[in-house]
Simulated assay, not measured.
Amino acid sequence: MADQPERAAAALERALRIAPDDALLWHRLAQVRLNQGQAEEAESLAAKSNDLARGDRALQADNWQIIAQARRLRGDERGAREALERSRRLQPERTG
């Protein structure tokens, strides 16, 4: 089962060759890389997803969550807090 994340990454990379402008695929690959402890790549992939996720505030917020976790893994606590704030600003306001 140790090869599951790498198999998932390979499948996502194949899908991205077919649909390179799919922000959700970039996001999912960022999640896989984060889970593998590849913080720099995860942050880069999440940023790419954000570039493509025009208008999808929920996806952008999720990407900023990944970026925050990646920065925290690298020891960049300040950068992580900034990313979490950006994520928070993209989330819909709660009423009631």
Rank of each mutant, 00 (worst) to 15 (best):
M1Q: 11
A2C: 00
A2H: 11
A2E: 14
D3T: 13
Q4P: 00
Q4Y: 09
Q4R: 12
P5G: 08
P5I: 01
P5C: 06
E6R: 13
R7S: 13
A9C: 08
A9Y: 05
A10Q: 11
A11W: 06
A11S: 14
A11V: 08
A11D: 13
L12C: 06
E13R: 15
R14A: 15
R14S: 14
L16C: 06
L16I: 07
R17W: 01
R17Q: 15
R17M: 13
I18A: 14
A19V: 08
A19S: 15
A19D: 15
P20N: 08
D21L: 05
D21I: 00
D22C: 06
D22T: 00
A23N: 08
L24K: 14
L24M: 14
L24G: 01
L25E: 01
L25S: 12
L25H: 07
L25I: 01
W26C: 00
W26S: 02
W26V: 02
H27D: 07
H27T: 13
H27L: 10
R28A: 04
R28D: 14
L29C: 10
A30D: 05
A30I: 05
A30P: 03
A30W: 06
V32C: 04
V32S: 02
R33V: 05
R33H: 14
R33F: 11
R33S: 09
L34K: 01
Q36S: 09
Q36R: 15
Q36M: 15
Q38F: 00
A39R: 02
E41R: 14
E41Y: 00
A42V: 07
E43L: 07
S44K: 14
A46R: 10
A46K: 06
K48N: 06
S49R: 06
S49Y: 11
N50D: 07
D51F: 05
D51A: 12
L52N: 07
L52D: 10
R54V: 13
R54D: 12
R54Y: 08
G55Q: 02
G55H: 10
G55K: 08
D56I: 11
D56K: 12
A58W: 05
A58F: 05
L59G: 00
L59D: 06
L59I: 09
Q60N: 10
Q60R: 15
Q60S: 14
Q60E: 12
D62A: 15
D62V: 03
N63I: 00
W64I: 05
W64Q: 13
Q65F: 04
I66K: 04
I66H: 03
I66E: 00
I66R: 05
A68M: 11
Q69H: 11
A70V: 01
R71P: 12
R71C: 04
R71D: 06
R72G: 07
L73P: 00
D76G: 10
D76H: 12
R78T: 13
R78G: 02
R78I: 10
G79N: 01
A80C: 04
A80L: 09
R81E: 15
R81H: 06
A83W: 07
A83N: 07
A83L: 08
A83V: 10
L84H: 09
E85S: 10
R86I: 02
R86N: 13
R88K: 09
L90R: 01
Q91D: 06
P92C: 03
P92H: 05
E93P: 02
E93V: 13
R94S: 09
G96S: 12
G96F: 07
